[in-house]
């Protein structure tokens, strides 16, 4: 069974994160637009619902998706517009994964205690 190499996994993750982020964006704009109904409207109740821990963990996943999609997007731009990008696409992808992990550390450091209620 062919399990793919770096380029294919980069594509699969880019496609999955992209679709998820686009759907999140549609939902996100709709829920933030509830501010139009004012301080006594549905906004605060809706946000309180989203502040439950499963949604906050979900938000961390969204952030991870944004960081991966952004960095891999820069890799795609390098592949498309430089003479060396395609040649180094595999090491660049490992760079994307490494940098995503590296950025994830301070993000988790900041947000996990908030979710656990010890921040």
């Amino acid at each position: 069974m062919y399990r793919g190499r770096e380029g294919q996994w980069a594509f699969v993750l880019h496609r999955m994160s992209g679709v998820a982020l686009a759907l999140f964006l549609l939902l996100h704009v709709i829920d933030i637009s509830l501010v139009m109904w004012g301080p006594d409207g549905p906004f605060n109740a809706f946000l309180a619902f989203y502040h439950q821990w499963p949604f906050r963990v979900g938000l961390v996943v969204v952030i991870a998706g944004v960081v991966y999609h952004a960095l891999n997007g820069l890799r795609i731009i390098m592949m498309d517009f430089t003479t060396w990008g395609v040649k180094y696409q595999a090491p660049l992808w490992y760079g994307v994964l490494g940098l995503t992990t590296l950025i994830g550390i301070p993000v988790l450091w900041k947000i996990v205690p908030e979710i656990l209620g010890i921040a």
Binding site: L47, A70, I111
Partner: peptide, 24 residues
């Protein structure tokens, strides 16, 4: 969007506790 989204995430998730976002 790399810069726009990173700035957006910084303002609302790193510089602020996203779990306390409310109408105010």
């Amino acid at each position: 969007l790399v810069f726009l989204t990173f700035g957006h995430l910084w303002a609302n998730n790193m510089a602020f506790n996203a779990g306390q976002i409310d109408f105010d």
